[in-house]
Write a protein that binds this DNA or RNA. Structure first.
Lengths: 84, 84, 84, 84
DNA sequence: TCAGATAAAATCGCGC
DNA sequence: GCGCGATTTTATCTGA
């Protein structure tokens, strides 16, 4: 593939990939819009969207956060092991 | 249990929104992974992923905007002919 | 500027901007290389570069983190204020 | 005070590295801000910042690589002529 | 060369 | 409507 698309088969592959990508991108876009709808509804119900985003982000980060803190413990210990 | 700040209905609504969001986020994540798989396969087939991304981006863009941007690019480049 | 670079003055401005940008980019690049040198030296001294990065990142985040936690406190309170 | 894990020399080295890093990071940050100023001024003069960025990026790139990439882009685009 | 981490850039949504 | 801040996406870099 360094120089050119040599044959029909390669061309078809490229088309297949692009179409696949664009299909998934479209699906993704739909989901993004659904998410937007939820946020809009929540907002119109009186909730603060920014706050909801924050909560969701926290819940997502939580497992990572535990791991992170464990890592940091190790980190500081290692940090002061230093040179041989 | 702490003092009830809000009513149960409000709490339930909030929970409903958050769960809805998290479900859609999960779906979105799956799609992102599928996209990654396509790009990986394209790469392993010999295609240049970066270029494919560029193509997809261009196809998504409004043609008028795209043309305008390309025109500006040429114009600026011309203006810089021979600089440095 | 919507359609073309009309005169010499505009062209000179563009050149000036580009050159300014490239100068600063070059300076930035030097600094990035100095940073790399420090990390390399630290590594050759026996420190774990990843750990040092972590420490630096933590120190940088620290003030933000306090603020973040305060914000979260408010967040959860507000979150359950909900609808009127 | 906790038990001494490492010697003072090692601690001092670590501190020296971290301070060096933070100094360079601060310098880098200044430069980034200067760059932002230039882009802002260019924008207020009527230039298209995105296009300027693209120009700078292209000028930075290895000419052979750039040409190769542009060639691939054209090739792929040709392959997709008439699709969708 | 590859994946995983880091940094840069573009996009989106808000408030002024 | 416009900048500004936050999110997401893209590109670069490093280590395995």
């Amino acid at each position: 593939m360094t120089k050119e698309i040599v044959n029909q088969e390669t061309r078809d592959q490229l088309i297949k990939y692009i179409e696949g990508i664009e299909n998934y991108e479209a699906e993704k876009q739909e989901i993004v819009e659904r998410l937007k709808e939820i946020y809009d509804e929540a907002k119109s119900t009186g909730f603060d969207v920014k706050v909801i985003r924050k909560i969701v982000a926290e819940r997502k980060k939580d497992p990572a956060k535990l791991e992170e803190e464990q890592y940091l413990l190790e980190t500081y210990k290692d940090a002061l092991k230093g040179v041989k």
